[in-house]
Amino acid sequence: MDRVPVLKLGDLLIVSIQIDLQDQSVLALQEDLADKVVETGARGVIIDITAVEIVDSFIGRMLSTIASITRMLDAETIVVGMRPAVAITLVELGLSLGGVRTALNLEKGVALLNHLDGARAVTAR
């Protein structure tokens, strides 16, 4: 089974999916991310799916699960780079990716995380 690498960049974790996702790889990624968020104290996770050609119900459910898990560990997950054909197919499949924040690309994803972090700092005051 191929493992998807998780990279640390400052206080962010970056995951760029470059392989054809097999179910086991998706499950492993979920566990790796949970561990890494706690280990590094990351405040955000960006999952780049630019290279992902399809998101089916299994992969979609895992993206939602990852977002819920990291949120519980005080880190926000943003999915970036979804292809238009993938978005159209997901909606028709009936998957809403509830609770998953998205941004068009990596740069916008980082900007969104910074914005969310700012909002969080204000609320905490």
Binding site: Q22, E53, I54, D56, A85, I88, T89, L93
Partner: peptide, 29 residues
């Protein structure tokens, strides 16, 4: 791993048949 192989093979044939990119994505899904 067969599920991954099937997705790849369906994609190849979908391109060959001339399905649009969106329709390729739908049938592979």
């Amino acid at each position: 791993s067969d599920v991954v192989l099937i997705r790849q093979q369906v994609r190849t044939v979908a391109v060959e048949v001339g399905l649009s990119l969106v329709d390729q994505t739908k049938i592979v899904t």
